[in-house]
Nucleic acid binder design. Structure first.
Lengths: 301, 301
DNA sequence: GATCAAATCCAGTTTTTCTGAATTTAATAA
DNA sequence: TTATTAAATTCAGAAAAACTGGATTTGATC
C-alpha cells in the first residue's frame, strides 16, 4: 500500500470524479482507475460502487478513506517534526518516568538544605530527549537508565542497580516464574525505553511466549493493575517500595535474576559537578541495599 | 512511501541488523539497504547512523520508526474493522500525567471484565500531543483536562470537576492562604499544561507574588516535597487522595475556590463510542463526590 | 435513441523493485 | 597490526509494478 494511492483516493473524495482526481495528482484517468483497483485487491474490499457515475464510496470505502487521511496526516506530522527545531539559570534537572522518580523529592529537599540558594527545576521526559538535552546544555544533568552509546562528551554514573521482579496478584500464589509467564495473562510494559527492551529480551531468551492482555507505559499503573488482578507483569524493585506494592507476590525475574541500572548523565566538563556529585550520593543512599557509590571515572559505554 | 518499506524498518528495529530484517520480510539484504535509502531520500532524513555495525537509529530515525508503527497499526485496525472485528483488538488510550492517572488501572480492569477480547494500550503524554493523536486517529480517546479550542471533529466529556488545594507541611499549621502564598517558600508547578496556567493565573489574580524555591513538573513529586518541608504549593484534590497526602495541611485555593475539570476527548465519529462511554462512566464513579455524568451532547468548546 | 463525459480495458513503455555477485566496511580475535 | 568474518553497500541485469495513450464501454441526460 503506497501513500501515492492514498493521495489519489483523497483526491477522488475531494473532487468527486476519477477524471478530476487524475488531473490533481498528475496521472491519467487510466492510472487512477488502476490504482483504486490495486488498493481494492490488496485490502480485499470494494471502495467504490461503480454502478453510478461518478462512482460512490461504499461504507467500507469510507473507512479506507478515513484511514488514508490518518496515515497521510501522520506522515505529514513526521515530516514537519523532522524539519523542526528546539530551545536555560537554576539547576536544570531531568528524569525519566522511572521508579527512581519517587526518590527525587527527598533528594531535592536534601540539595536545598546543602545549597539554600539553589533552585531546582525538574523536568520529566524520555531518556533520548534528556540525553540530547544534557549534551546540548539545556539540562545540567538527567536521571536515565543504562544506555547504549552515550555521546563521548557525557558521563553516566549509576546510583542504583536494582533487580527485576515478576509480580502477580497475591491470590495467584507462588509458582514457577516460567510457568506463570507462559500461562497467565501478561501486562506488557510497552514503552520505547531500555527497561521495556530489557524485559522483552529476557522473556525471549527464556523461550517464553506471553499472552498479552494489555500494554501500559507507566510502571505505577502496571503495579496497580496487577494488584487488582488484571494479570502478571515484570517491574523493577523500586516500583514495589511504596504501599501499592504491598499485597503483591514477587518472584525473581530472569535466570539469573535480571537487574537494571539507573544513573545520572552529565557533561564531563560542567560547573555543576559538585552539586551533581552530591545528588548522586543522596540518591545512592536513598536506594539502600541496591545503591551504588559514584566512581571516580565512571565508564561511559 | 510504501508500507512494505515501513515493515522493513520495523523489522530492522526489532531484529537489530539489516541482514536479519531481510530474512524476516523475505527480501535480500541488498533490497533492504535500498529500501532504507529510498525512504531516507524521500523523507530527506538520515534514519540510520551507518558508522557502526549494525547501524544505529538516529534520533530522527526513531521518529520515523514511531511513525511507521502508527501507520502500520492504523492499517491493521482498518483491515480488522473491514473484516468485521469490532469490540476486540486494541483500544488505544492516552492520558496526561494528571492525578486521574491513578484511576486508570481500576478503569482498565473494569473494561476488560466487560469486553474480554479488548486489549487496552495506554500511553502517557502531554495533552496537546494526545489531542492531536486522537484527531489523527492514533488514539481512540485520551484523558485530558479542560482545554481551549478542541478541534471540531472531537468531543470532550468531563468526568470529574475537582477543587484545588493550597497545601503546606503540617508543622506550618493553618493560616490565611494569601498570607502563606505571600510569605512561604513556594514550589511552582512548572509545566506547559492547563493546570499550571490555571494556578498561575489565579495567583496573579489574587495579587500575590510568590517566593519560588523550586519548579517541578510532576504533581506527585510536589506533594512529597511539601510533605518533607521544602515549601508550599497548589495541587488538585485527587493528588491528596493517596497516603502521601495524609500529613499535609490543605486550604481552599482561590476566591472562590478554583476547580478544574478532566475529561475524555474522542472523535465524534468513532467505532469505539460504546467502549469510551463505558470508560467515562467508570471513571466518573471512581471520582465519587466530584464525578460528573456524561452528557448526551457535551459541548466541545 | 443520441450525445457526452467518465471509467475501463488493452498493450506497449517507463519506472521501480528486486536479485545475486562483487566489493567495502566495521568489529573482533590473534 | 594483521587476518578473518559477517554485515552493509554497490552494481548491473531481471522481474514486477506503474504508467501512458488509444480504443471501448458505460452511466447520465436530453
Amino acid at each position: 500500500m503506497d501513500t501515492r494511492q492514498l493521495k489519489t483516493l483523497l483526491a477522488i473524495r475531494s473532487h468527486g470524479t476519477f477524471a478530476q482526481a487524475a488531473d490533481v495528482v498528475g496521472l491519467t484517468p487510466s492510472a487512477v482507475s488502476q490504482q483504486v483497483h490495486a488498493l481494492e485487491d490488496e485490502l480485499r474490499v470494494t471502495i467504490f460502487d461503480r454502478s453510478t457515475r461518478p462512482p460512490q464510496a461504499t461504507p467500507e470505502g469510507l473507512q479506507v478513506i478515513e484511514m488514508a487521511e490518518d496515515i497521510l496526516r501522520r506522515e505529514e506530522d513526521t515530516r514537519a517534526s523532522l524539519r523542526g527545531d528546539q530551545i536555560a539559570g537554576t539547576l536544570m534537572l531531568g528524569s525519566v518516568r522511572s521508579s527512581a522518580l519517587n526518590l527525587l523529592p527527598s533528594a531535592l529537599v536534601e540539595l536545598r538544605h546543602r545549597y539554600p540558594g539553589l533552585k531546582p527545576s525538574l523536568r520529566i521526559s524520555l531518556s533520548s530527549t534528556l540525553i540530547a538535552d544534557v549534551a546540548a546544555g539545556r539540562l545540567d544533568a538527567a536521571i536515565v537508565a543504562e544506555h547504549v552509546g552515550f555521546p563521548s562528551a557525557l558521563r553516566w554514573s549509576p546510583f542504583v542497580r536494582e533487580p527485576l521482579w515478576l509480580i502477580a496478584p497475591r491470590e495467584m500464589g507462588a509458582q514457577d516464574p516460567i510457568e506463570l509467564l507462559n500461562t497467565r495473562p501478561y501486562i506488557r510494559f510497552h514503552s520505547n525505553v531500555p527497561l521495556a527492551n530489557l524485559i522483552d529480551t529476557e522473556i525471549s531468551r527464556l523461550g517464553v511466549v506471553t499472552n498479552d492482555v494489555a500494554e501500559i507505559d507507566t510502571i505505577g499503573s502496571i503495579v496497580t493493575c496487577v494488584r487488582q488482578g488484571l494479570g502478571i507483569s515484570v517491574v523493577p524493585h523500586a516500583a514495589l517500595q511504596d504501599p501499592e506494592g504491598k499485597d503483591i507476590t514477587r518472584l525473581p525475574f530472569g535466570n539469573p535474576q535480571v537487574t537494571r541500572q539507573i544513573g545520572i548523565v552529565e557533561r564531563t566538563v560542567s560547573p555543576r559537578g559538585e552539586i551533581i556529585a552530591r545528588l548522586h550520593g543522596v540518591l545512592s543512599e536513598l536506594c539502600g541495599t541496591y545503591g551504588l557509590a559514584r566512581t571516580a571515572v565512571a565508564d561511559s559505554a
